[in-house]
């Protein structure tokens, strides 16, 4: 349990948010041309990093906007929060 600084609403309890998993997974541009391996990679395979991970969050019980977060999964410390479409911060 931790506090999250929503880029639109400010600091709120994590309970208001929904975790959206690993960020920056790009939807295939030509889905019809993907092999089964490439589909599996896109749909299922995840880095699941122990350490700083980039992930998506949604302020589900607030502004309902999506944003990105860099968070250390070993101690739940939030390193950076940035908007959708922005590049991840340098490590």
């Amino acid at each position: 349990m931790f506090l999250i600084n929503c880029p639109y609403c400010g600091e709120r309890d994590q309970q208001e948010f929904k975790a959206g998993g690993e960020a920056h997974i790009e939807r295939p541009k030509q889905p019809t041309e993907l092999s089964d391996d490439q589909w599996a990679e896109y749909l299922f395979m995840r880095k699941n990093i122990k350490g700083v991970q980039f992930e998506r969050w949604n302020h589900a019980h607030g502004c309902r906007k999506w944003f990105n977060m860099a968070r250390d999964t070993s101690n739940d410390e939030i390193k950076a929060i940035y908007k959708m479409g922005e590049k991840p911060p340098p490590q």
Partner: peptide, 14 residues
């Protein structure tokens, strides 16, 4: 389970 990835061995109170 909590819905976010974590290795902290700590979950949320709610």
């Amino acid at each position: 389970t909590d819905d976010y990835i974590s290795y902290s061995q700590k979950g949320s109170h709610q």
